[in-house]
Design a protein around this nucleic acid. Structure first.
Lengths: 342, 342
DNA sequence: CCTTGGCACTCTGCCGTGATGAGTGCCAGA
DNA sequence: TCTGGCACTCATCACGGCAGAGTGCCAAGG
């Protein structure tokens, strides 16, 4: 079937171009892949593929390079996600299992992803919005200062130092601690905010101001967007590997890496939950990053994605490998977080 | 005085080279700086400076470029730390004043430093070793799991989830909390470890195993070197500005930025407390970073440096400006931390 | 109808050449 | 001690020609 061979040619072009980083010609193609036809035949197919917009030649008498559309077809129909080797799986498992806390899990994931894919890795911290409040703790620092500690189901801890208007007795403190936890513990962030804000009206008049102060700080801490926006980045050194496309890929990416909001938007628009999302070149939201691709996946409990992780690299990247690594890491991280949960 | 003019020539060469990034010749020198002598005279001085190893010419018939030794002389004797403008001072103050917690202070400092100097900024988190324990908190998560929270005087919070061998009553928990705090609160890390480790012997026999478990986790958390080694990095996008020296400067730096241990060693060997340290090119500990310089300063309470912050860039950098920015930020951060202390 | 070998054509990349110009070192004179 | 002059050295650039890779097209064969 002719159509089949054309797709085989496209696949071969993508694979060769990713491997060699150079435009690939018809001769090299038939030699390296056992296509069983002559270069001339391949040339005809290439001309057709070019007409359809899947490949493109930088100039007459150069080899062909896949277009974004070509990569898209490759990812959608021509590539199988290649399974991780047993050794890689073991490496992932042992590295992540020995993480001591949430921060550590995220840090290790970033390192893992970047070294597995030899690409820039991005891991979003679990978002607050979908997690629940596990505990609220009050600690007296000085007579007029209290440290407010908020522990969430994801393991994230937020602390705030609060100035209180007047001294407070141990009994008051204990009472308040109980009340705060009754209102918030076990609730989702949004629900906890509502419950907490109703709290001041239920306490003795003398405590109302104090309670209001604390509740305000708590709700601020919960809705603090900083926490939603936190990401970890790693593997920037891998950018050095494609020093050739410095201005089109390295520089814009370096700039983007500083802007965590940009990164979140890059890897963030993943709705499909478990599946791996691939955004190729111009498909992404930023025109400056038109020659980079993103491979990302959500992670978290099976039913709901807490956050996203992924890698960013040049459009000319090893998609099957990256997709496999991203999927594997996302799964393991989900499992780790799930275990830490109870 | 001849010697004086030679130094003036060196200063002019450094300033011009930093500004233009190109080897500077005798003619350009007398034109741009009012040296009052002819190019020929300057050439003689240059020849002398070259003999003494302060400057160097890439090839015959090229202008001169300062050597590391030349930059060193410039930094030590020829440059005054240029004071920050009032606007800059205000910007630093307002940005840092609105930080909400330790993490935020560090993050903001990194951003500040990198945007002030247009260089890569590195800020070490305050080290544990010199800080004191402010409070230890126990929170029951499930009947056999306890969240242990350690709050330090620097504002740093460490949390650990601990499996306990048997269920524990509220009373036991409260008792233990008091005991732990009596032993550790207010003490330096090292002293707290000693006191805590003596604790299990003083409690009723039934509680000994439990206490031992918790104490072990606490001491582990305190001596956890991860925390000593934490650094924040920012401004990597500024690396894009010297894309010319990609292989000699950008690539090694990118690689170093991943290795936080390396970064700590880079900015870390500062003993002088308040003063700004400059390490130029080969003076540093890593031969791969021979064409980069580090400007760093310790910060923390007046008497003791808690940690270090600084910038890394090409040897061809604006030393007076960088030194001023580093010093200013170090001072403001010290003040902020000091205020947060009480 | 598809495939194939052949052939002319079009580029890019590379190399050697020569001209240009910036910058130096040195020397003799003020 | 400074200065102007002069010969000299290199890097850089533009130019032209050459080799090589790769294509498109065509006519012949399965």
């Amino acid at each position: 079937m002719v159509e089949d061979r054309k797709l085989a040619v496209l696949r071969a072009i993508v694979e060769d171009y990713v491997a060699t980083e150079e435009p690939v010609g018809s001769r090299a193609l038939v030699e390296r892949h056992g296509l069983g036809v002559s270069p001339a035949t391949v040339r005809n197919d290439m001309a057709a593929l070019e007409d359809e917009g899947f490949i493109h030649q930088p100039h007459t008498s150069a080899g062909r390079v896949p277009t974004d559309k070509g990569y898209r077809l490759f990812v959608d129909r021509l590539s199988a996600v290649k399974p991780m080797s047993a050794a890689e799986k073991r490496a992932i498992a042992t590295l992540l299992d020995s993480a001591v806390d949430l921060d550590d899990v995220v840090q290790r994931s970033v390192r893992l992803l970047s070294s597995l894919t030899r690409q820039v890795a991005i891991v979003q911290y679990p978002t607050l919005s979908r997690s629940t409040v596990r505990h609220v703790e009050l600690v007296v620092i000085t007579p007029t200062r209290v440290m407010l500690i908020l522990i969430l189901s994801t393991g994230r801890v937020e602390q705030r130092l609060v100035e209180i208007p007047a001294e407070m007795s141990e009994a008051q403190l204990a009472d308040l601690r109980v009340r705060l936890n009754q209102a918030a513990a076990g609730e989702r962030i949004a629900d906890a905010c509502v419950a907490l804000n109703a709290l001041p009206d239920t306490v003795p008049h003398d405590d109302q101001v104090l309670t209001r102060t604390l509740v305000d700080v708590l709700t601020e801490a919960m809705s603090d967007h900083r926490s939603d926006e936190r990401v970890a980045v790693g593997g920037a050194a891998n950018l050095a590997r494609f020093g050739d496309s410095f201005d089109t890929a390295v520089r814009p990416l370096l700039e983007a890496l500083e802007e965590h909001v940009v990164l979140l938007k890059l890897i963030g628009e993943v709705t499909t939950g478990d599946a791996v999302t691939v955004r190729i070149g111009h498909e992404g939201p930023y025109s400056e990053l038109a020659s980079t691709s993103v491979v990302a996946a959500g992670y978290g409990p099976p039913d709901q994605a807490l956050a996203t992780l992924g890698v960013v690299g040049p459009t000319r990247m090893d998609y099957p490998g990256s997709m496999a690594a991203v999927r594997a890491v996302a799964r393991y991280v989900s499992r780790i977080l799930d275990e830490g949960q109870q």
